[in-house]
């Protein structure tokens, strides 16, 4: 446990610039939104509305947070592969330490964005129609959970393709590896898309119907319900991507 903890502390320090950059960016966007809103309208009310809109945008943008964090973290490791790969720890431990730190950093900025969204809603007395604070927090919590799941999924997709790229790099060179990795990513996404239109896919995922938050229905993101089967399906893909990434990291990536 101490080994993982110390590794995680190293990852925290390695990822600190990315976290601070995001934190500063977040404060800058919110400040700019308030300034522009105040200038465009006649006072603080418009400023707060702009901040609320910006916070909702920032919350949504977190679906890409972990991916961006992993891009930074793995790229930082690129020149230190002789140290990172010479670790006796399995790939799953090395990657999980990075992912855990990314999730921690994401939780901080997502909490700030969500808190700003809630505070501005309270100050503006601007609850969505038919909502109480209870339903808003329950629905918001559901959306936040989905943002986490999507963020983890996208990050694992990136890690997998980064491993493919690194595996090919020493064997085929930078350009060829990049092109092959890109084509492979496109092919996988195309095949997944095709499969998701089949009856078999529907048979696999269409179970465990749950109602989706009305905010999502009103904005057209959801059609009123979500299937639990879809979550299981994507969790399965995420597990396969993670396992494959760890295997490539342990057996195929070269310094």
């Amino acid at each position: 446990m101490n080994t993982w903890w110390q590794l995680s502390k190293k990852e925290f320090r390695l990822g600190l610039p990315a976290f601070l950059f995001t934190l500063i960016g977040l404060v800058a966007v919110l400040t700019l939104a308030f300034y522009l809103g105040t200038r465009a309208g006649s006072g603080d009310h418009e400023g707060l509305q702009a901040v609320k809109a910006a916070s909702l945008l920032l919350i949504t943008a977190h679906v890409l947070y972990l991916l961006c964090y992993m891009v930074y973290s793995l790229q930082s490791e690129r020149k230190k592969l002789h140290l990172w790969l010479a670790s006796p720890l399995p790939g799953s431990v090395l990657l999980s330490a990075k992912l855990a730190n990314g999730l921690l950093a994401m939780t901080v900025t997502l909490s700030i964005s969500s808190a700003v969204g809630l505070i501005t809603t309270a100050l503006l007395h601007d609850l969505p129609k038919g909502y109480t604070w209870g339903t808003l927090i329950a629905n918001g919590g559901f959306i936040i959970l989905n943002i986490y799941l999507m963020s983890i999924f996208f990050a694992l997709c990136f890690v997998f393709f980064w491993m493919i790229y690194r595996m090919l790099l020493r064997r085929l060179g930078g350009i060829t590896s990049g092109v092959i990795t890109g084509l492979f990513a496109w092919l996988l996404s195309y095949l997944t898309n095709l499969f998701e239109k089949t009856e078999l896919y529907h048979a696999i995922v269409r179970w465990g119907k749950i109602s989706s938050p009305s905010i999502l229905n009103q904005t057209g993101i959801s059609s009123g319900h979500i299937y639990l089967g879809v979550y299981i399906w994507y969790t399965g893909i995420a597990v396969v991507l993670f396992a494959a990434s760890c295997w490539i990291l342990d057996k195929k990536v070269e310094v």
Binding site: K10, R13, L14, L16, K79, K80, H82, L83, A86, V255
Partner: peptide, 13 residues
């Protein structure tokens, strides 16, 4: 144990 010819370390340590 492997000592690399490269000089890269985690500079923050």
């Amino acid at each position: 144990a492997y000592l690399s010819e490269l000089d890269e370390f985690y500079g923050f340590f």
